[in-house]
Design a binder for these strands. Structure first.
Lengths: 127, 127
DNA sequence: TGGTTAATTAGCTGATCGGTAAACTATCGC
DNA sequence: GCGATAGTTTACCGATCAGCTAATTAACCA
């Protein structure tokens, strides 16, 4: 997977186990063992998932004696949300109205020409 | 990568080339060759990226003679947005206020106990 | 001191990913 | 029909991923 932050975030989210871990952490900070318990998977596997989540900035880990409590970090999720949000107009309203226009034989209007630079200002086109 | 839809979507977004393709498609439907032109990459590589995006439902492809015009599909992005949106409270407002509360020595209140089932109702815990 | 519990690291495997080159398919225009 | 244009498919390669077992680190408890 690419090394840029957004790719790390989306890559981390592209796994049901990791998303379930985040879901659990939404109920509050907890330990690695408790996070692991619902899964049919060894502890090292969970540990790896946590590392992926941490590298993406989706969680952070503290220390409490021999426990390493994990907590959800909203910042990275916000980055993901912000990126996706730039495309909001592609699923909001538009659908019915635009569909109708197209059905009616309207030509490709400026309507679907979006905020030009909106998506991916930091998106290096050839990294 | 896991086979569930959300994983396909996030997995597809976890690549700067594919995100740049989506950004380009936000400016309107276009052909594969035009999509490929900004990249220092062969056509087959782009073709693969498009297949990943299509499998995730992020784009659709039509036919116009020998061209296969691609268009952005908002639905999948909406799914991603909806999923991430369930965690909104983790980056909205809360930050300063909650941080302040914690600093002030407030115990773990119900405040950060979230809408219980909010995240991942379809998230199978052990697939 | 020694044992237990919590978690990570190391090393291995098989599967998937991102890219390539080469060959193939399909459609257009002459 | 023929050549050019647009795009996909088919191997193939090295790198990364997700999981495992076994060993290791770190802190507690008695």
């Amino acid at each position: 997977m690419a090394a840029d932050h957004l790719s790390l975030i989306f890559g981390a989210l592209a796994d049901p186990t990791r998303r379930a871990i985040l879901a659990r952490l939404a109920d509050g900070e907890t330990t690695v063992n408790e996070l692991a318990s619902p899964f049919d998977m060894t502890l090292p596997a969970i540990s790896k998932h946590l590392k992926v989540l941490e590298r993406a900035g989706l969680i952070s880990r503290g220390r409490d004696a021999q426990w390493r409590p994990c907590r959800l970090e909203g910042g990275a999720l916000r980055e993901a949300s912000d990126w996706v949000g730039r495309y909001r107009r592609f699923w909001e309203s538009s659908y019915d109205e635009l569909e109708a226009l197209i059905e009616a034989g309207a030509p490709a209007t400026g309507a679907e020409a979006p905020a030009a630079d909106a998506p991916a200002p930091t998106e290096t086109i050839t990294p």
